[in-house]
Amino acid sequence: MFVRAGRRSSFAVAVGVTRAGTGLLRKAAPGTRARWERKNYAGRTVGLYAGPAAAVAAAAGAARVHPGAGAAVLAAGVCGAYDDVAGDHRRGLRAHLGALRDGEVTSGAVKLFGISAAGLAAGALLKERPLDKLLAGVVIAGAAHFVNLVDVRPGRAAGAVLALAAPGLLRKGPGGELAAATMGAAAAVLPDDLGERMMIGDTGAHALGAALGAAMVAGNRRAGLLAHAVAVVAAAAHGDRVTAWARAL
């Protein structure tokens, strides 16, 4: 069951939770500092604090509207966190599926099946008809993958989420509220991401993408679901081109 949360409230809560979580992790992150630092594309040392904070904020914001959506966003963030910690050099679905055929379960394979399962479960809860449930699952999982594909330079992922979620604000009801929560989390991390002080990592990218997908699902009927499903499947099939396009922007 969808719960009315309000677009302004959803946006504000997501911004506040993301900023508070980022600040808390920066001051008292568990483990060593090295665990929370990475080298970005330019070789600069940046923190990963914003990723988990954005994931929790997006999941909390989505859960205020629909528990199933919140669970899918949180699961996507957890799968992304596993890849941030245990990931290897391989990128792209082909590489990870190839390793799986050889009997090796990579972090990418864990993400693929984990996020797909979470997306399908959420789709089953968000929609009523069997085909709509399937399409909804594809959209949620595919959107999570798409946002991760474009997370190759500062601000690309958060910027894509803001741009793609913005039309959802025009919709009344749960679609608009989910879009607002997604945008709040993305807007909160964008300044530090662009300033190369932090990166959102796979944790933030997958969670924000799943939240974006959930907003699309809540705001569309079958025709819209089909169009979005085709788009995310096409993006996954041409992942290298999508990544190259995002890198060139």
Rank of each mutant, 00 (worst) to 15 (best):
A235Y: 11
G175K: 07
G142K: 04
R91G: 10
R19T: 14
R247Y: 10
D132Y: 01
L249H: 12
V139M: 07
V110N: 04
D240P: 12
R26F: 12
G70D: 02
G168H: 09
L135C: 05
K111D: 08
G119N: 02
R247V: 01
R129N: 06
G77N: 00
G119T: 01
L149M: 15
L249D: 13
D151I: 09
T32M: 04
L208H: 09
R38L: 03
A244G: 11
V105G: 05
L48S: 03
A231T: 07
L208R: 02
D84L: 04
T32L: 06
N40D: 15
G176L: 03
A124K: 02
G108P: 15
H238E: 12
G142N: 06
L169D: 13
A211F: 11
G119M: 01
A50F: 14
A109W: 13
R26A: 09
V3A: 08
W36C: 04
F11P: 00
D84W: 14
A75I: 05
A121C: 08
G176S: 05
A63H: 11
G92E: 15
A95R: 13
L93A: 08
V230R: 06
D240S: 03
G137F: 12
G201W: 15
V78Y: 02
V13N: 04
V17P: 13
P191R: 02
R19E: 15
I200H: 02
G114E: 05
G184A: 01
A179W: 05
V85N: 08
A57T: 09
L93Q: 13
A63F: 15
L178P: 14
A186F: 13
A14W: 04
M198V: 06
H96N: 08
G137D: 08
A237R: 07
A231R: 10
L131T: 00
K133C: 05
V217K: 07
M216G: 12
K27H: 12
V13R: 10
A95Q: 12
V46Y: 07
A166K: 03
A180E: 00
G98M: 04
L249T: 14
H206M: 09
A188Y: 06
K39W: 10
P191T: 04
L208Q: 11
A231G: 05
A75M: 12
R153G: 06
R44K: 13
A163C: 09
L208M: 10
L190Y: 15
A5C: 13
A53G: 10
A144G: 06
G123Q: 04
P130Y: 08
R101S: 12
V242I: 10
A118Y: 00
V230P: 14
S9A: 10
D84F: 09
K127G: 00
P167T: 05
G123E: 05
R7K: 13
G213S: 12
A141C: 09
L178F: 07
L48Q: 08
H145M: 05
V85S: 07
K39C: 07
V147M: 07
F11W: 14
D192R: 02
H96I: 09
A99G: 06
I115V: 15
G43C: 08
L74P: 00
A231K: 11
R19F: 10
L126C: 08
Y49M: 00
N148G: 07
G176V: 02
A12V: 11
F113W: 15
L112Y: 15
A223I: 06
Y82H: 12
A124I: 03
V110I: 13
R101M: 11
L25Y: 03
G201D: 15
A165M: 12
Y49G: 01
D192T: 03
L225H: 13
